[in-house]
């Protein structure tokens, strides 16, 4: 049983089978992986289901940066975070799912903050179509009452 590989490295395997060698300190920023390591049920390779190689690489990049830059100025890290989460909606969705499922608190925080910034100042119609993927037909039928509501001025 080697919960920690030589030099404290762990191997993470993405859903599409790609393997990443990651320092343990970086990997355990995911609470889910940390629990596995602490319970000593992490064998040589830790499978990360539901997360493909592309997204896993991004998550690891984020965690590495946060691990390295603990001593760095908080403002630098903030800039990195805001640039990191500035992605297309599909990647954002996958990242949120991964961060939530693997319990990576810092990443989830940065992502949620980013989505909140995107929502701020947008109209209700915009949110429905962009975030909820509503079709126009659905809006016209099931949400008729709500449409009357959103014409009200909340200023």
């Amino acid at each position: 049983m080697s919960s920690s590989l030589e030099k404290n490295m762990l191997i993470l395997r993405s859903s599409d089978g790609e393997e990443f060698i990651v320092p343990e300190v970086v990997a355990v920023m995911s609470k889910a992986i940390k629990n596995m390591v602490e319970d000593e049920c992490a064998s040589n390779t830790i499978p990360v289901p539901n997360v493909d190689a592309n997204i896993l690489a991004m998550v690891i990049e984020f965690c590495k940066k946060h691990d390295e830059s603990e001593a760095e100025a908080a403002s630098d890290l903030k800039t990195f975070d805001s640039e990191f989460v500035n992605r297309g909606q599909e990647a954002l969705y996958d990242l949120i799912t991964a961060a939530n499922f693997r319990d990576v608190k810092e990443l989830l925080d940065a992502l949620c903050q980013n989505v909140a910034e995107m929502i701020k100042g947008k109209s209700v119609h915009h949110i429905r179509i962009q975030f909820l993927g509503y079709q126009l037909f659905e809006i016209l039928t099931s949400n008729f009452i709500w449409n009357i509501w959103c014409d009200r001025d909340f200023d």
Binding site: Y93, L108, I127, W146, W149
Partner: peptide, 27 residues
């Protein structure tokens, strides 16, 4: 729709009151 409820909760909790009042009409 596909995001877990707790994540939607987390996102909305970061919005200012004025946005929240409008977002009540989303669904």
């Amino acid at each position: 729709d596909n995001l877990p409820q707790e994540v939607v909760f987390d996102i909305l909790a970061r919005l200012p009151v004025k946005s929240l009042l409008q977002m009540r009409c989303v669904c």
